[in-house]
Design a protein around this nucleic acid. Structure first.
Lengths: 249, 249
DNA sequence: AGGTTGGTTGCGCACCGCGCAACGTGCATT
DNA sequence: AATGCACGTTGCGCGGTGCGCAACCAACCT
């Protein structure tokens, strides 16, 4: 909507892929290097980008502060955290917390597995939205039109043979998830990793967030993981209670 | 440098303090609401702000992804992390990692204490720059003119009677720190919390980061904490070795 | 030395972003 | 139920501002 602002903001994801010099930024943006420089300067003044010694730009430390503030304003996270830690300690597996926002599902918290095998997932990483258990839970509760719109606009990468192949399959899966009140992903994202998830509901009954328990096959089988489902659901329910007890913003 | 971009970016720290409506943003920015709206829309399109149900804006989830990417591009962090975890497990106390960037010192990693008493510090929070051990270490190694410039431009809040009172005191302290190769903060930030820190040096010998060990008086006295100094310094040295062994970006 | 690549500065044109005014819309108040 | 109010939204014409050009530097390579 606003040209220069749009261009400036487009620089950020560019730099997220790695540091870049002025010329590089300019060509990738499709603007004159003078223009790119003015934008970068402004970003720099606000601490969003940093100029390293070799004169290349990378993302700045101020982003930490902003992300931190963003996290704090999501009060689900604050409330859920101790519950997740407890679940992590009790089971020893990796625990995730995710929310849906603007057609994307994002991890907003994580408790690492006690086992040496650590999964490659990170707070802030966009979730594999077509397969992850938390994604299914969050999508399942969207109002029908948005759910369809999102499902049809998605890409369906076949991470493994068990990945959700297309919109139709996803929508069917979502219906099942909505029905049963929990979700699973058995090797749909990475062949050897299984995952189960449960919804966290706000005072209005809508799914405000979702949490999950993940473990690789080498540690526990899918069946063994499923025995933890009641415990996971109890945790999710406890968080829901805590969360819906609060006065809504 | 670029008006509209500057205005747009000024919105972010505003929203960091809490959600705000259009009118509120406009007045605080000192612009017409229609202008504020265009800026917010652009920010929204790029995922940096999110519009919640009550039409107020707050920081968006995309910030997580950017902050995450920013963290990854700081390879000190990747390298240091396992060392810090080990130190945390060995001592049981809180471990911090911080870097200096553009007149600010930021925490970029943290390992929580095993004890129930948890400190209020957060990755992304700006550090109490005049007193924290890590801050002194990082400032101590700046080139003389920048060090002076920073010291003189700072504010010197007296968190406690032991806080560094002014620029002169800070500069003297920095000289001592540079001399002895480590730093301490005994109750200068919070009365009952002590902290010791050590520098992490890059291949060029410059201080690239600093790590610290903090604990409240109720757990260990300052003297007891000091007995851990050699261990802390060994950790810092190990990280330095790892770090300077790498090919510099 | 000369060439090349990449960053910086000055400047005039026009485009883009600005604020105004008018219009919706939902909530509160009577 | 009607009226008022507060706040968000849309259309539009003017002018400032952000644009790209061109020329200048500096560093590095050959």
């Amino acid at each position: 909507m606003s040209q220069s602002v749009g261009r400036a903001l487009a620089i950020l994801p560019m730099l997220a892929e790695g540091p870049a010099g002025l010329e590089q930024v300019a060509t990738r943006l499709g603007v004159h290097k003078t223009t790119a420089m003015r934008l970068l300067r402004t970003l720099h003044e606000h601490g969003l980008v940093y100029r390293q010694d070799d004169q290349r730009y990378r993302l700045g430390a101020r982003l930490f502060a902003l992300a931190q503030a963003a996290a704090e304003s999501l009060d689900v996270r604050e409330i859920a955290h101790p519950h997740l830690v407890r679940l992590g300690e009790a089971t020893g597996h990796t625990v995730h917390l995710a929310v849906y926002e603007d057609r994307e599902v994002m991890y907003i918290d994580k408790v690492d597995s006690r086992y040496p095998v650590r999964m490659y997932s990170r707070i802030g990483r966009p979730v594999a939205i077509t397969v992850a258990a938390v994604a299914k839970l969050l999508l399942a509760d969207l109002p029908e039109p948005e759910r369809r719109a999102v499902a049809e606009r998605l890409e369906y990468p076949m991470y493994t043979p068990r990945s959700t192949p297309d919109a139709q399959a996803l929508l069917a899966e979502l219906a099942a998830v909505r029905e049963q009140g929990w979700a699973a992903d058995f090797g749909g994202h990475e062949e050897s990793i299984n995952c189960i998830g449960a919804p966290i509901r706000g005072a209005d009954g809508r799914t405000a967030a979702a949490c999950s328990l993940s473990a690789p096959n080498v540690v526990v089988t899918a069946d063994e993981l499923m025995t933890l489902l009641p415990q996971l659901r109890r945790t999710a329910a406890a968080i829901s209670d805590d969360y819906s007890g609060r006065v809504p913003a």
